[in-house]
Design a binder for these strands. Sequence first.
RNA 1: UCCUCGGUAGCUCAAUGGUAGAGCGUCCGGCUGUUAACCGGAUGGUUGCAGGUUCGAGUCCUGCCCGGGGAGCCA
Length: 444
Amino acid sequence: MFEKGWTSRAFPWASIESIDWWDGKEVELRGWLANRRSSGKIVFLIIRDGTGFIQATVALNETFSREDLKFLERLPFESALLVRGRVKREPRAPFCGYELEVQGVRVLSIPQEEYPIQKKEHSVEFLMEHRHLWLRSRKQNAILRVRNAVIMGIHEFLQKEGFILIDPPILTPAACEGTTTLFELDYFDLGKAYLSQSGQLYMEAACMAFGRVYCLAPAFRAEKSKTRRHLTEFWMVEPEAAFFTFEDNVKLQEQLVSFIVQKVLAECSRELEVLERDIKPLERVVPPFPRISYSEAIEILQRKGFSIQWGDDLGGDEETAISEEFDRPVFIHHYPKAIKAFYMQPDPENPDLVLNDDLIAPEGYGEIIGGSERIYDLDLLEERLREHNLPREAFEWYLDLRRFGTCPHSGFGLGIERTVAWICGAHHIRETIPFPRQIYRIYP
RNA sequence: UCCUCGGUAGCUCAAUGGUAGAGCGUCCGGCUGUUAACCGGAUGGUUGCAGGUUCGAGUCCUGCCCGGGGAGCCA
């Protein structure tokens, strides 16, 4: 294995993201060869270490011979390297304004085949087939770092608001909403089980034990959806709070979303720059968000020429048209009871409506939140189960929640991937999750 | 499930029914500041699969497989 100019002295292991801190000092970088260029007597190695990219320069000198440079300029992409050198401020250097003057290189591994992903455009199919390698590229790294900040922001905000993390089951005995969109599997001698499509019902149980709870878990939907907003496996945060009214619930949603966006702006400026995200629309994301009722939404859509009638559900195009009317996320509330889930509390002023809200992200990213106040009256909930032809036995435990100390409570679900896609300005939701699961893709 | 577009070299794409090509990558050589470096040379094919029409099919027809975009549904 190639080793040149290495000494047994220990050098500090520096990360590229904080390389400015090491200006003028000798450090060791541990990473991979992302690109290289040569010019006869100088070789430029582009090193990535997971935290960033930096240019390292190897010059012909007493340490590196002509043959050494020849070797380095032929080193295959994605070779694993330890590189020692001096950090130097350098305006000509790409990425971060610093470069590493290399004094020693140790090559830990050399790919025996050509690295498939090149510095050029690739088809979606090819990139998805190589998702395990695509993760190494700069934009994918940036998107998943934003995802990390979003998830950490959710925990930070909800914990601060007194919410307790409660993990829901993934294997469940019955549907939470419709039964047509469930992944089904055999469960020993107990018949069929299903992958969870929401943790909500379990959060309702938990909020009666802890007051304020939330889960952050995967949800599975066997919908045969093939759009840029759909995955069969996605992540959702679902807060649920006892004694929260519709109004409390909506306020919590706009505070949470604002907090997340402002956190990303504060902590991920490099990532947003790599993604070429225009941050002006994000800077406007502060409370209060505009609110319109479902009926007002229908009026707006009819004025804009949509052939939609009161009672119809809103599709993707309709959501986009509504969001265009506002400069920040917009709530649409009080939908007709008939097109919403069985557990939503009726509006006391109009029993044909429910106390629910959807939050529509700006710039055409669609619905990112669905929330509601929940039915807490036993008789009414039983009636709704019958209307929706749901198997009562499977919901006995859920009905128990209305038999013992029932009270008003509310909650919502926020889709992690749609939120990340919106904040990043990503073309497609599949880039916002490390290994997307889609109707025609389960590999890698 | 439906609508729509596509599948040709490792990758991205050309090719009127008539000898399958280019750029990039890779390999070899050159270059002391490159920025997806550049310059010269070399390398590269069961045209997704099966059948059919035709003197002749990457091209036309039928079926199948795989994928992209969208709809419905949803976060």
